[in-house]
């Protein structure tokens, strides 16, 4: 494993990442090209939210938000529900 890789937990599963910040990590997980505001570069809307260690991180703060070894990340979206 690359020495710069960090191990974090994403939706309950351990994963190693080289992403420099949360913005790049979310882009990686969703396979979307994101601008620094956390929205897709194609003008559509992403429709996901992120919590790190049980605190919601607004998309405007993803850029520059460095991941820490052992972070517990939840990535959620809308699913069918009453």
């Amino acid at each position: 494993m690359n020495a710069l890789a960090k191990t974090v937990t994403v939706n309950g599963v351990q994963s190693a990442t080289l992403a420099p910040d949360l913005l790049h990590f979310v882009a990686e997980l969703t396979s979307r090209n994101l601008t620094s505001t956390g929205q897709p570069a194609d003008g559509s809307r992403l429709g996901v939210a992120v919590a790190v260690n049980s605190a919601v991180i607004p998309r405007s703060e993803w850029s520059g938000w460095e991941l820490t070894e052992g972070d517990d990340i939840e990535l959620v979206t809308a699913v069918q529900g009453g």
Binding site: G12, T30, S31, A78
Partner: peptide, 12 residues
Amino acid sequence: VAMRRYTPETGA
């Protein structure tokens, strides 16, 4: 809608 974990299969 409900909020649940993102999966690559269903995306958003």
